[in-house]
Amino acid sequence: MITGPALLLALMEGAVGAAVLALTALGLSLVFGVMRVINIAHGEFVMLGAIIVWWCSAELLGAHPALGFLLALVMAPVVVGLIAMAADWLVLRRINYDPERTIVATMGLLYVIQQSVLMTYGPDARPIEPPVYFRIQLPWFGYSGYKLIVIALALLLLGITWLILSKSRIGLYMRATRLDAETAQAFGVPVRRVYASVFALGAMLAAVSGVLIAPIQQAHYLMGADPLLLSFIVVIVGGLGNLRGTLLAAALIGIGEGMIAVLFSPTLAKMIATLLVALVLIARPGGLMRESAP
């Protein structure tokens, strides 16, 4: 049953999954790392990204799908980032980022976002034309060229995020807040604004991955559940809040999931992954990767 072509397909599917997952999970991990809260509505930001790309390419510009896609690549993070900032200001700040209450509140946010989309966009899964459409014919099977572009774009975006985090002032503030919010505040870091921007940045990463995945999967109001679950898994296995661990875990889980899904059953793959998380958390509450800094 396990033949070369099947393995190759598994690897390719896994790589696409891993690349997009890395973006989504990085957002979740960033939020947890700096703010120490878990955002249950994270998957809905992915969904919003997909809805925006549909809107840009199908409704706004009837023109070439690539134009709409490029517009969405800019617009989705901006819109979703603003929504996230509003959520931070209206909700999270008011409950003082209490971990348990944040979970309940973001769960509320999940329903509000998802159901608002259902109300306006409707219950249908709508197709989005990929910005470029071509097919790569391998000797055993064909593969979508767009999927390979997704890998490249995701890597590029990860690189940009990495630069922002390590080189810019805001990145410095974020790292300082992550290490110790109170000390950072004492040194003049505007912690509240850092929180708002981190929450927004996390959401923007999710939205961008939604834009990338939409031409592959269609846009649907319930599509947020899977990315949330998988990025949860990745963030936990990688060590809560550990960004390098998150990326590594995304590669591992993404490709691993692709392999199991192709060779056995997608449901089984997800089941194994979720159980893995539970076990990891129980065995080592800090995650597989220990954070280098205390």
């Binding site: 397909l9 999967q217 269609q218 192709v262």
Partner: peptide, 13 residues
Amino acid sequence: IPPTETSFTKYFS
């Protein structure tokens, strides 16, 4: 294939 599935290529092998 589960009716809620969103990507199918993995099944075709």
